[in-house]
Design a protein around this nucleic acid. Sequence first.
RNA 1: GCGGGUGUAGCUUAGUGGUAAAGCACCAGCCUUCCAAGCUGGCUAUGUGGGUUCGAUUCCCAUCACCCGCUCCA
Length: 542
Amino acid sequence: MGNEEQSVMQKIVSLCKRRGFLFQSSEIYGGMNGCWDYGPLGVELKRNVKEAWWSEMVTHHDDISIPQGAASAFEMTGLDCSILMHPQVWKCSGHYDLFHDMMIDCKDSKRRYRHDQVRGRWALLDDKRVFVTAICEPEEEQEVLLARAQKCFGLRAKDRSRIRWDGDVVSLETVDDFEFVFGPDAKEAGSLTEPREFNLMFKTHMGALFDENSIAYLRPETAQGIFVNFKNVVDSSRVRIPFGIAQVGKSFRNEITPRNFTFRVREFEQMEVEFFCHPDSSQEWYRYWRDRRMEWYKKLGLSESRLILREHDSAELSHYSTGTADIEYAFPFLPEGEYGELEGIAHRGDFDLRSHMEGKLNPATDPLEVEVDERGKPVHRGSGKDLSYRDPVTNEKYIPHVIEPSAGADRATLAFLCEAYTEDMAPDEKGQLQGRVVLKFHPRLAPIKAAIFPLVKKDGMPEAAQDIYRDLKKEFPVFYDNKGAVGRRYRRMDEAGTPFCLTIDGQTLEDGTVTLRDRDSMDQTRLSVEEAKQVIREAIRC
RNA sequence: GCGGGUGUAGCUUAGUGGUAAAGCACCAGCCUUCCAAGCUGGCUAUGUGGGUUCGAUUCCCAUCACCCGCUCCA
């Protein structure tokens, strides 16, 4: 593929590898699907993304002022939970049921079904006996099954009456031999595969014994660690509602199709807040967090034209959620007009805390009820612990409602990388315009804040530059380079996204001033080292 | 998971059933007073595993990874 035909995304992937932002995991052994490693520059970039998030959410949060748009002042605190948790956590959260489906593939239609959702009925025609299946609403089941049976036997409509039924409509789970099963979208019988476990949670074993009782799961989200620690945090930290608990950490999902660089991966890092509030003010808090999170991405450089806030419509919402919005970004690997999710802000009501109290709630019920088996017992028992909150002022006791802004650290990092990638023209030594690749990171996110260059490798310039390097290094991540022409060094730093370069020349030795070169404009300014430090300080603050 | 495509150096590409080529990048040195200069030298590759063959990077099979489409996206 020629350079001109390369897509923007391919160029970004190539730059990421060339400059050490991202590598394929286990590359020397052929790579690992859906796993990526952050290189020397990438780790700094991602750390800066997470640090910008954590500092805004937790360390720099002002507990006593009322932020713009907020209903009141509120507190924010942090948490770092273990990745392995009690299996019951995932049963009550709904992940166990949702992530553990037995799936069936149709070799004919290429469709996939949940084993327990496929229903059908044994149909007889002459000496033929076929289990005819369908996926449809219960009220139209009889009609659809008849139509499918007709198709299966290759009958005309007028001959439908020749079909006889053997038994009632039952689940496909009652059928052992798939050879005589007519799939819901198949053209002939026998196209369905045996049910296969589709495990979207990573399974492992605790302890040395590998048996059913030792199964543990790698967390598929960080949120549950916060919910199960809700009581611990309330009891130990004097926080009062409204307050939020933040957590950054790895989560694992056995994605069916890892795709699009680090966008859809099997091991990823989340940045989540669970914000606990009174049910009456929850809508107000939902809007607050939705809008505030959108601003965060803009503030760190994502362009407004590539970002959208997408409110889920009622069909997309779980009914217990009274609002969910996605912050989405127009990644270059997506078709024009399509966006990929960076963060979801969900109003989760009291679903999570109640599930951990009473047992897994059935999300299809309204009001929410504990999901029970045929004997009326909870399908998954809750902890039985009281996770409600007593307001110390009003003495009101209630289960808090939860607003959940849940962001992907890797997706955010990728968005910042894509946004930063720029090709422009810059003059070379002879004044000829040459193509230039530059990563225009917000200085706050840039892995290296400034590079220190002696203009040439002689006349005491390296020594003076090294002194300045050591001085700046105490405050910023800076980089020293004395190799080759200064223009080449500038371009290298452009590809690393370094916002400033300080060049030390003969005049530096006389009056202590340096040249500060700006990455984006390539403008050069003569100023003192102190002034240059101040410029960098102000740029990385936001 | 299905279908199609691709896999040669750090990157981008060339080429061949018989010693694998180049540009850029990178490293060392020289030179160099502000945007990829020049000179000298150097490092580095046929994704992995089989098969066919005297000999495979090339042909075949499998596998892995990536890309595109479908599916999935809880």
